[in-house]
Write a protein that binds this DNA or RNA. Structure first.
Lengths: 225, 225
DNA sequence: CCTGGGCGTTAAGGATGTGTCAAGAACGTC
DNA sequence: GACGTTCTTGACACATCCTTAACGCCCAGG
C-alpha cells in the first residue's frame, strides 16, 4: 500500500485529500506546517509527498531542500495560480511535479500515480553517442572519435553530466548552478559561461558554432544528441 | 455519465437545458440561485457547471470564487449580450468559457463537450501537438513539421506556455499579462499584441489568418489544439 | 461620413545576456 | 615549500531581447 504524506495548512484540503486518497487505497498521513512535515517525513518515510507551497512557518523550497538532503521521495507541489517563480523555484529545488490550486481530484491522482511509477529505479542508458564524441555516464568518460579520452575537470564533468542526463531538454541556468555548484548558487551565470565555453572547446568540432551544447538566450542550455 | 449542474434563475432556460441535456445523455440537476447552487456543487460534485451571471441573490463572480476555492470543475458562464466587463470578470475569476444569451443549443453543447474533455487529467508527458507544430512543455521545445526546432525568446515562450496550458480555454488579457510580466501589469495590452504577433509569425502557417492563436476581441486570447 | 477604440504590424533605442580572454586565488600532490 | 591544476573573478566586445512609439486597418456608433 502506497503511503502518502500531505503537508498543507488548509483543513478543508487536508480533509478532501484524506477522504479521496483513502478511498483509493492510499495510506494517508498529514501535517499542517513545514516543521512537523519534515519530522513526519523522517519518521514515516512516505512513498510520496504532497506539499503545499504556502505554509505558515517556512518557505516551500526550504521544505523541499530539507527532504532532498537525504531522500529522493517524489514530491508533488501544490501552488496557487500565477506564482510561476515560486513553482520554478520548487522544481529547481527538487520537486517532481506540481498541481495548481484549485485542482481536480482526477488530475492530482494521475500525477500521483505518475510520480510513484517514476520513482521506480530508472532504467538508465548510461552511454550517449554523437557523431563527434561519446559520453559514458557510468564510467565517467568522454571519448572523441579518433583520439582517445578527453580529460575533463570535475566541474566540467558535473556540468556535462547534468546536461546529458537531460538531453534534449532545456535546463535552466538556476538548475545547472544548483546542481553543479550547490543550492546557494543561482544567479552566478558567469560560471556557466566560462565552463560551457571550456566544454565546447574540448568537445565541439567547431567551438564557435556549437552543434551539441546549445544556448537558449535568457533561459539556459540544452544538450542535443 | 457526465453530470451537469445548471444554475440559472429563469425557469424557461432551466427547462430547455434539462430537456436537451438529458436527451444527450447528461445527468442534469438545477439550482435557481447562487446560494443553493454552491450547496449543490459541494453536495453533488458535478462534472461541469453552467452558470448564469445574472442571479438574483449574488454576483456571478462570487459564485465562481466560491467554487474555485476548492475545486477546478469546469465552469461555463451564461451572460446577456453587451455585459463585456462582467464576462471578463467571470473569466478572470476562473470561468472556463462563456456563451452569450440568447444562445444556440448546438453551441452550448459544443462548449460543454470541450470543457469536459479538457478537464480530463493532464497527461504525464505534457506534449501538445497540432497539424502544424508541436509544443513540448517539459523540454521547452517547439518543433515544426518538416524543419527542426523553432527558437523562442523567454517572453515568447512564457506567453505560449500559459496559452497552451489553458488550451481551448479563453485566457484574459489581464491573466496573460500577470502570468508573463508579473502582478504589476494588467492593462498593457500592447505587449500582448506585439508578442502574439511574433508567435503567430513563428508558428502559424498563415500568420495573418491564425488557426491556433485566436483573438477574442475585447477579452483575450485562446489556443486551439 | 466621420470618429474612436481595439487590434496587427513594424522598426529603433536601450537594457540585458552572452562569448571570450586573462590573471590571481585556492587546492592538492609530491 | 614548490609546483601544476583547477576554480573564481573581472573586463570587454558583441549579440540578443525587451520596451516603446508610431502607423494602418477594421468595425461600431454617432
Amino acid at each position: 500500500m502506497t503511503r502518502v504524506l500531505v503537508i498543507d495548512d488548509e483543513p478543508s484540503i487536508l480533509r478532501a485529500l484524506r477522504i479521496n486518497l483513502t478511498a483509493r487505497n492510499y495510506e494517508v498521513s498529514t501535517a499542517s506546517d513545514g516543521a512537523s512535515g519534515l519530522a513526519a517525513v523522517s519518521r514515516e518515510r512516505p512513498d510520496v509527498l504532497i506539499l503545499d507551497l504556502g505554509l505558515p512557518d517556512m518557505d516551500g523550497t526550504e521544505v523541499i531542500h530539507g527532504v532532498r538532503g537525504w531522500s529522493s521521495t517524489p514530491i508533488i507541489v501544490l501552488s496557487v495560480w500565477g506564482q510561476e517563480e515560486q513553482k520554478v523555484a520548487a522544481l529547481d529545488a527538487g520537486a517532481d511535479d506540481y498541481v495548481t490550486k484549485p485542482f481536480g481530484m482526477d488530475e492530482l491522482l494521475a500525477r500521483l500515480r505518475a510520480a510513484v511509477r517514476r520513482s521506480a529505479p530508472a532504467p538508465d542508458e548510461p552511454v550517449v553517442a554523437t557523431p563527434d564524441f561519446t559520453v559514458d555516464l557510468a564510467a565517467k568518460r568522454v571519448t572523441r572519435g579518433g583520439d582517445g579520452d578527453i580529460r575533463l575537470t570535475p566541474t566540467e564533468w558535473q556540468l556535462l553530466e547534468v546536461l546529458v542526463r537531460n538531453r534534449g531538454r532545456l535546463v535552466t541556468q538556476r538548475q545547472l548552478l544548483q546542481e553543479v555548484w550547490g543550492p546557494a548558487y543561482g544567479s552566478e551565470s558567469n560560471y556557466l559561461r566560462v565552463y560551457v565555453a571550456q566544454l565546447r572547446r574540448k568537445l565541439e568540432p567547431e567551438p564557435s558554432r556549437p552543434r551539441y551544447l546549445l544556448t537558449e538566450p535568457g533561459m539556459g542550455y540544452r544538450f542535443r544528441a
